Computed example of a mutant assay.
Amino acid sequence: MKVAVYRQEHFNAAHRLFNPEWDEATNEKVFGKCSYPNYHGHNYDLVIKVTGIPDKTTGFVMDMKVLSDLIKTSVIAKFDHKNLNLDTEEFKSLNPTAENIAIVIYNILRPQISDDLDVQVRLYETPRNFVDYPANG
């Protein structure tokens, strides 16, 4: 019997959605205000879902303190109060859409969590816009 546990964290970051192969007009048509050259910011809410069978000894799927520390050191410290396009290696050549940010966060965390546990990233860019990766997690 599997159980899902969740840890929610928060970070603030700026970004610009922009395809350098397109001209400004095309970028504005596709990305709207999100393509403006002076960037814009979001208050991101991040929810990490870990699913597995509770340990017989501890009763934990995963120690939530360990999960919290992992998120803070591997994700929050890297992205909080940063310009994702300018200040992070991950988005130097990757458009920092909510979808891509979720995939990057998953790829950072997945190798650090036991293989017998399933991991899913939910990233809220706004209270009404959010993404899940993987989508079937």
Rank of each mutant, 00 (worst) to 15 (best):
P20I: 03
V61F: 10
G41W: 02
V121F: 03
V121Q: 03
V119E: 05
F60G: 04
P54Q: 00
V50M: 07
E89T: 08
R16A: 06
F60L: 07
T26G: 07
E9I: 02
N100H: 08
L46I: 13
P111Y: 08
R128H: 15
Y44A: 10
E21H: 09
Y44V: 06
P134A: 11
M62F: 08
D80H: 14
K78T: 15
V30A: 13
I105Q: 03
V121E: 01
L67E: 11
E21D: 13
T126K: 01
P111A: 13
E90Q: 13
L117N: 11
P127K: 13
I101K: 09
S68K: 15
G52R: 12
A102V: 04
N38R: 02
D55A: 07
I113C: 09
T88F: 05
S68Y: 13
Y6M: 10
L67Q: 12
N19D: 13
H81I: 04
W22L: 14
L17S: 01
W22E: 05
G32R: 04
S68E: 15
N27V: 09
F11A: 03
S35G: 09
V104I: 14
H42Q: 12
H42E: 10
V47I: 06
R110S: 05
L117R: 14
V5D: 03
I113G: 05
D80N: 15
A135H: 06
G59H: 09
N100R: 00
E28Y: 10
E125N: 07
D69F: 04
R122M: 14
